[in-house]
Structures are given as structure tokens and as C-alpha cells.
């Protein structure tokens, strides 16, 4: 059994999909796991997860972070991606209504703009998506919601375009992304791998821009430095989105396989590693353009 198949085998034997080995079922890890199982040919098991997502979907179309926490709702983006991937692979419309309802919620959800913020370096008036209701727009939720919108063909929707503008505006001058600020009181903040990788994943097929190049260079450098698994997986996804699935990524992958082989790790990390191992074929990426 090769390393990827071994990951899939481990995933397929899990009773719950959580952020930690002993954690409660949560929407983000469940959505990623469903995509892995679908990709690996375990549609029946994936559908159990997808139906669980349906069971926690609110009347307004949103899907909260866990079954007993219907808010925040940023995880609606991931549920939609998983439902849509099911439609692509199976050619069925089992979850089409749920996905549409989720997309409708996404289109109505907005981060709070700030009209006057002279101490902040980013354009605080751009509207993307927030982590929690009634707060500012931040990088990761904006990127995830853009992916969901692109997966259903909303590449040119005004919300998608403004979200892309926001992601570009939040690139640090030297490359990479912070969790969402660029400068505060004139001081440039620190770049981080995970938000950069997620932003680069959502910027797939967007016009070439030197800011994107700088951020990809940052990710390539960080991959070599050996970031922890979750960040490494998102970095690989971001690089693969822009044709930079290089030897460093493949080496990083091998190292990750060896690190997780005998470890008790979360299904969240198992799923992320499986998805990252697919390189340019990662469903988080292919979902965004094949139906565009």
C-alpha cells in the first residue's frame, strides 16, 4: 500500500472527523475528509459525512463550525465545496439544493467595512467575509468563500471579484500574508504560511501579479524550512495552484508521510495531507476552475 492509500485507509476507518484525535465532529475536518473519501472512491462513506453536514445546515443555508455551535458560519464555504465535489464526481444532484442554499447564504454574508482607519495599512473598506458575524473581513474566510463561489461558477460575481481584490490588497510588501493586516501604525506585520497558502489557493487562475510571485517565493522558502503539517499542507496547495509543485513540495510530502505514519493524529491533519498529496489535482484547486 502506498503512502497516500495508507492515509485513505486510515481515514476510511475513522468514526468521527475532528480537529484533534479526541475532538468532536466539526465541519471543517468533516468537509475535507469527505473530499478525500470521494476522491479515493469511498463515496458511500463520504455521503455519510455529507448527510451529516446537511443535518446541521441551518434554515438560512449556513453551516456552523460544529453540530452544537451553529455560529460562526464561515465553514459554510467548506460544506459547499464538499457538496459540489460530490456532484462533480458522481454526476448526481443529491446535495444540489443544500449547496445552493449555502451559496445564497455566502452571497448575503459580509464582513464589516471600516470607513476611516488611518493607522491600518490595508483598505478597510473592501468587503469580504468575516470569521464571526458583525466583525471585519479577514483573509482566510474570504479566501475560503471565494473558493466556494468559484466552485459553482461565480468567478465573475461582484462579491468574488471584491474578495479577490481584498486578498491582493492584504499581501505583504515583501511577500506572504499575515492573518489579515498588512501594516499597523506604519509597521509591517509578520507573514504566516497557512493564510498565505490558503490565499494563494483562492487566487488560482487570477492574472499574473508580482505580489503573487512574492508570496509564492515566500511559501517555497518556508516549505524548505519545514513548517508543521497543517501549514505545510496549505503551502503545498498554494504552490500547486500556481504551477509550483516542485521537488521541494514532493520532499515535504515524503517527510510528512514518514512523520504521521505511526502517530495518532487528527483526521483534520490526515485529510489535509491527503489533499495536499494530490498536488495540482487537489480538489480544493480543481473545483475552482473545471466548472468555471
Amino acid at each position: 500500500m502506498n503512502a497516500r492509500a495508507a492515509l485513505l485507509d486510515r481515514l476510511s476507518r475513522q468514526p468521527t472527523f475532528a480537529y484533534s484525535p479526541d475532538g468532536v465532529m466539526a465541519t471543517e475536518p468533516a468537509s475535507f475528509a469527505a473530499m478525500c473519501l470521494l476522491h479515493g472512491g469511498h463515496a458511500d462513506q463520504a455521503e455519510i459525512i455529507l448527510h451529516w453536514l446537511v443535518s446541521i445546515q441551518a434554515d438560512d443555508g449556513s453551516v456552523g463550525v460544529t453540530a452544537d455551535q451553529p455560529a460562526p458560519r464561515w465553514t459554510t464555504s467548506l460544506a459547499c465545496l464538499a457538496w459540489r465535489f460530490h456532484a462533480r464526481l458522481t454526476g448526481t444532484s443529491t446535495f444540489a439544493a443544500n449547496c445552493q442554499s449555502g451559496i445564497d447564504w455566502i452571497l448575503g454574508a459580509k464582513g464589516l467595512p471600516i470607513e476611516h482607519a488611518p493607522m491600518m495599512g490595508h483598505d478597510t473598506r473592501l468587503v469580504g467575509w468575516c470569521w464571526a458575524a458583525e466583525t471585519h473581513s479577514w483573509l482566510e474566510p474570504t479566501a475560503l468563500h471565494i473558493m466556494a463561489l468559484k466552485s459553482v461558477g461565480h468567478h465573475d460575481h461582484s462579491r468574488t471579484r471584491e474578495g479577490i481584490q481584498l486578498l491582493m490588497d492584504r499581501q505583504l510588501a515583501d511577500g506572504g500574508c499575515n492573518y489579515g493586516n498588512t501594516t499597523v501604525m506604519g509597521q509591517q506585520l509578520l507573514p504566516h504560511v497557512q493564510p498565505t497558502g490558503i490565499a494563494m489557493s483562492a487566487l488560482i487562475n487570477e492574472p499574473t501579479d508580482s505580489r503573487i510571485d512574492k508570496s509564492l517565493n515566500y511559501l517555497e522558502k518556508q516549505i524548505l524550512a519545514g513548517p508543521p503539517l497543517t501549514s505545510r499542507c496549505f503551502a503545498m496547495s498554494g504552490l500547486a495552484a500556481h504551477g509550483r509543485w516542485t521537488a521541494a513540495c514532493r520532499d515535504g510530502l515524503k517527510l510528512a508521510y514518514s512523520q504521521v505514519r505511526d502517530q495518532k493524529i487528527s483526521t483534520y491533519k490526515l485529510s489535509l495531507l491527503y489533499l495536499a498529496s494530490l498536488g495540482p489535482e487537489n480538489p480544493l484547486l480543481t473545483s475552482q476552475y473545471e466548472l468555471g
Binding site: V65, W131, A132, T135, H136, Y179
Partner: peptide, 14 residues
């Protein structure tokens, strides 16, 4: 927890 308050915990800031 960030899962309720975000990264950053912007709910608190607001």
C-alpha cells in the same frame, strides 16, 4: 477559543 471568536478574536475587539 478562536473557533468562536476568530483569528484575530475580532468579536472582542468590536
Amino acid at each position: 477559543p478562536g473557533i468562536k471568536y476568530g483569528w484575530p478574536k475580532n468579536v472582542l475587539h468590536h
